[in-house]
Design a protein around this nucleic acid. Sequence first.
DNA 1: AATGAATGAGTTTTCATTCAT
DNA 2: TATGAATGAAAACTCATTCAT
Lengths: 213, 213, 213, 213
Amino acid sequence: MSERTTAAEEKRRVILDAAVRVFARKGFHASRVGDIAEEAGVAHGLLYHYFSSKDEVLETIFSEHWTALLDRIHAVEASGDPPVRQLRGIVRSMFHGWRSDPDVVRVVIREIARSAEIGQRVGELVKPIGAIRRIFERGQAEGHFRRDLDADTAAVIVYGAIDELLTGWVLGRIPGEEEDVANAEHHIVEVLAAGLSASAEQLGEPRHADIPT
Amino acid sequence: MSERTTAAEEKRRVILDAAVRVFARKGFHASRVGDIAEEAGVAHGLLYHYFSSKDEVLETIFSEHWTALLDRIHAVEASGDPPVRQLRGIVRSMFHGWRSDPDVVRVVIREIARSAEIGQRVGELVKPIGAIRRIFERGQAEGHFRRDLDADTAAVIVYGAIDELLTGWVLGRIPGEEEDVANAEHHIVEVLAAGLSASAEQLGEPRHADIPT
Amino acid sequence: MSERTTAAEEKRRVILDAAVRVFARKGFHASRVGDIAEEAGVAHGLLYHYFSSKDEVLETIFSEHWTALLDRIHAVEASGDPPVRQLRGIVRSMFHGWRSDPDVVRVVIREIARSAEIGQRVGELVKPIGAIRRIFERGQAEGHFRRDLDADTAAVIVYGAIDELLTGWVLGRIPGEEEDVANAEHHIVEVLAAGLSASAEQLGEPRHADIPT
Amino acid sequence: MSERTTAAEEKRRVILDAAVRVFARKGFHASRVGDIAEEAGVAHGLLYHYFSSKDEVLETIFSEHWTALLDRIHAVEASGDPPVRQLRGIVRSMFHGWRSDPDVVRVVIREIARSAEIGQRVGELVKPIGAIRRIFERGQAEGHFRRDLDADTAAVIVYGAIDELLTGWVLGRIPGEEEDVANAEHHIVEVLAAGLSASAEQLGEPRHADIPT
DNA sequence: AATGAATGAGTTTTCATTCAT
DNA sequence: TATGAATGAAAACTCATTCAT
């Protein structure tokens, strides 16, 4: 009853964590309610004491992660740091979950972020991209970033690069140990900052369309 | 038996195209065999005349698209063009499918590229990334691209940027008309080429870790 | 495809008839979908080929019966017969189902007619009562029936008497063979016609309230 | 332990009253133990402190009401009043519950009186009808009531009329305010007494079977 | 080739009841 | 007494796949 988590809240957490592991291992659709219950060490009926359906479990996982991510992203935006440093902050925010709880990121990335199925929460997804766009726009206004580039496109490119690294780790395509993450964080900011910088504008080769499709 | 498609081949095509639309709309798992049949205007039993299972339908879609994509990518690699131009060629190859058949891209991106479930096929996915990596490595060797950057990471960043643009179009998050695609193609190459270029190496700010997570 | 019932319609009928028997025997709530399927000699899944849920099966039984009943009742109303004869027609209409298909009446009476649960179709239930009311009102207007009596109350009394006889048969409280039904039909009309007749008006004892509750 | 109800008895009462309201609203089968507990403002586990099962709750409601009703009916039978006045006494007894506690009546009527499922209790139900039958038989013997009428049928008709009025009030089909009940009481006795009276015997139209079914 | 009725294993979900606290 | 977490048997329902026609 005090500020400490009650036993009930803990059990809810136990089920949620079990679900994350199971979803991460087998995918949402292939995971049975019974699998989750077994992983949590409870009767399957108990899941329905805490959640109204298997779907709600997934949505809860998504919400918790996404809320935390957005909080971190908003803190970055509010920091008043220069754009490139904010960019790094965004990268860190997004990589953070992977380092602290890879399974959650695995589930969120695989089951939700890429799926219109669960979510007309596409709206949700847009939020981090929006933050990136605003940072980029501010960077443009302040002369840091090239002006010949649509902010939406820029934001999508940045978000995609970050997300694909996460996905690579999630799917085990590329090594995602502590050190790899730190390196990736450094390099992705390097590359994108350089590619987006105002001084890169004149580096571009002239636009042509002479390459066959 | 010659180049003329038989009636049977056409009916198979009808089912396949219907499946693409249905998968694109609802996702593979949420799509029922009956949905596909309905979309195709045939009885659902007929699907089993042409395919051995629902899975095989998805695999067929994947193969057809992926094979064509890999062919184009290999042609790019074999062209002998300079790295940046090859990079552009890769981007074009990947965007091409979107322009010609967005639903197929939608399905391949959502259901396969992100799923470890379906794919021991992850191996497949690596192929475009592998091509990008090889191009980048050659560019490094020839002095075009910065050397302080792991080729795998670079390739993932490039692939991610491309893929996220596709995803943005697929999910309708960003406009994906003819002109938008052309612009995106131009800019993504600009940004990545600049960011990855050897001359960008010294632009990077010194590496620090003083930003709180 | 012709006017003859198709095989599919027949199978639907088989399931519906099986459901009627099972519901009549065990009651709707105690009847399992598997019981119905077993009674019908089909797999339980087939039930869902023809009906969307167990509830829909019950509703179909109700509708079919009710529609037929209302048709008969409307024919009686439209007949132009004198009120007492119409009254007899209503009684016959309602008893008819019992004679021809007691199980259906059993189910309709037990599971639906008395339950607000299934039906805000209470509206439906009112329809036969409404017909009785209209007949009574016409009888009042023509001088056949007593005028000191609210038509609604009269209709409820008539309907209740009819319905309770049906219920008695349904629950086996009173014998409901062919002959019993014929007798009941005769007597219920006798009693109600006499009780409602204008000439009965003066028979009534003076109204007093001296009997303790 | 004396006439003062203990706290425990009161809590038991609270649960029982809540159950009555819930059963009245949704029907016994569709009512969850949790619904009752919620309505009573207690934890659902507590219900099992006072009752051994959900069924026992229903049975308790039944017993309380039915016992009281039968007591009243027996008093009427034992009164020595003339048959028509006894008939009125029966009507009053049955209407009494409605005026004092409509929900209880609602539950008893819907869940028990009509259910062969719950009841070997059908035997119980027969009791008020039996009382009516005995009164009618006595009335026949004394020359008050027509002799061409089977006593069972007569009793069922009377009971049905009474019951349908109750049902009409219960389900809100007809107005059931104080005054309506008083009027209905008067009229139902009027109609039935007239319809059943010996003097009505010759009013009946000759029996024919010339109306098509 | 084509249909769609039929199957049934496999899932999710419900909910009365128990029991530790 | 009182709570509500926990259980699990029992149901409803789904849907890929088969197969008679």
